[in-house]
Design a protein around this nucleic acid. Structure first.
Lengths: 233, 233
DNA sequence: TTCATACTTCGATCATAACCGAACCATCGA
DNA sequence: TCGATGGTTCGGTTATGATCGAAGTATGAA
């Protein structure tokens, strides 16, 4: 049984600019309405409706109806990951003239990948957590006792995370950095907390912007530094 | 600048069954001729020629002429990785009726990803190497001193690997296992060595089959076991 | 109940691209 | 040099699919 047609059926869905724009608009983990997605894709409502029906039928999206509004979101983090992989490949192969504007640098620095922190900051988070012994296991990531203490102190309800079906710690390959950042339920919870503490704010699209205070706090909490005294702040 | 069209341009290339078959046929890292690829894709020579021209122009493939033969191979491991990512997404979203035949199980057990070991065995290799302290760093993988000794003893010329441009240790996400296996120059060298020692042989397509002796030797060398006494064999 | 808004469906248009037969070009070996 | 083999290019065919105007359905608010 050939694998080509299976790959092609998924890839063909991504191979239309309007549909790719729709999926990209959803990469920050939010749910958007048909109208919003039509606008994001630059097509009419009816065209967007047809595209969304296809993506829904293919289980790339999940739809929820709220009154007369129909909200769509990505069906899982692996969709975002495939999109990121394709962007990385496009860049490496020259399919995109890399116009290094401020937005590109911002995306590289810190962005949302589905629901967790990605980019340089995202990779730094995972590397720092491992360096400090909060997360162990290399590939089968797991919280250490020390990590449980630190993340609990940081404001994360670990027992709630562990009750869910989603793996707590999951390495998620970051294509702008070519290393992994932290996905999974913990990755998502950390991003929520960062935003809650106003260390980070959502910016245009998937861009995340650290506040000055937030960058300091982040580095102090998750940086690869001699940890005990710098974290007294 | 929207990312949709960039993603779509790459994805559209993968979205044709014949082209996807061509790329899949090259996923085991070999270079094949136009005729061989036409056969693998199930199209005529002239159709394959057109497809290959497109993939070549997009830098997804690299072509080499040898007399009247024209050989193509993937332009890098990230192409294989994108294909694996798409296969994983296809499976999760139900785009493939998972007919669990022996071939699927064999691919899951051990297969070639570009030029290194993937599947259960591939993940076990990386996990075991980290468990034994041969490779450190979680995400920024690096050889330890102990690892240098063990891999050298295993028959790998590390100084040659380090002279090349390719990173020695690289985590490569394994989509059948949802964890990373070991890519990079070391991953490739290990697979070469496994084949050389006849612990593994190439089988149909990308399937790798461990010999009995090879499975034992592999587990003894790279398994997550109390290492000192079992490795005396 | 009526009107406004969100969304879906239908039908027609039109551009695109995969496909293959035929012809041509390039290389190899007798 | 000729014939065989590998591969490219050309031209015509045909199926596909994105697009949008128009019309219809569903929901919410006044």
């Amino acid at each position: 049984m050939k694998e080509g047609p299976v790959i092609a059926s998924v890839a063909a869905l991504l191979g239309d600019p309007a549909r790719a724009n729709i999926l990209t608009a959803l990469m920050d983990g939010r749910a958007l309405t048909v109208s919003e997605l039509a606008q994001a894709a630059g097509v009419t409502l009816q065209t967007a409706s047809g595209h969304l029906a296809k993506l829904d039928a293919a289980n790339l999206l999940v739809a929820e109806k709220q009154g007369r509004h129909r909200y769509f979101r990505l069906s899982g983090p692996d969709v975002a990951q495939v999109l990121e992989a394709l962007m990385g490949l496009a860049q490496r192969t020259g399919a995109t003239r890399v116009r290094t504007g401020p937005k590109d640098a911002a995306l590289r620095s810190a962005r949302i990948c589905y629901d967790h922190l990605a980019g340089e900051r995202g990779v730094a988070l995972l590397n720092g957590a491992q360096w400090q012994g909060l997360i162990a296991g290399g590939q089968d990531l797991a919280l250490t006792d020390k990590g449980r203490a630190v993340f609990t102190e940081f404001g994360i309800d670990l027992t709630r995370l562990e009750k869910g079906r989603r793996p707590v710690c999951r390495a998620c390959l970051d294509w702008s950095e070519r290393h992994s950042h932290l996905g999974g339920a913990l990755g998502a919870a950390i991003l929520d907390r960062l935003i809650e503490k106003q260390w980070v704010r959502r910016d245009a699209g998937r861009v995340l912007t650290f506040t000055c205070q937030g960058a300091e706090g982040f580095d102090a909490t998750f940086g690869q530094v001699p940890d005990e005294d710098t974290r007294a702040a």
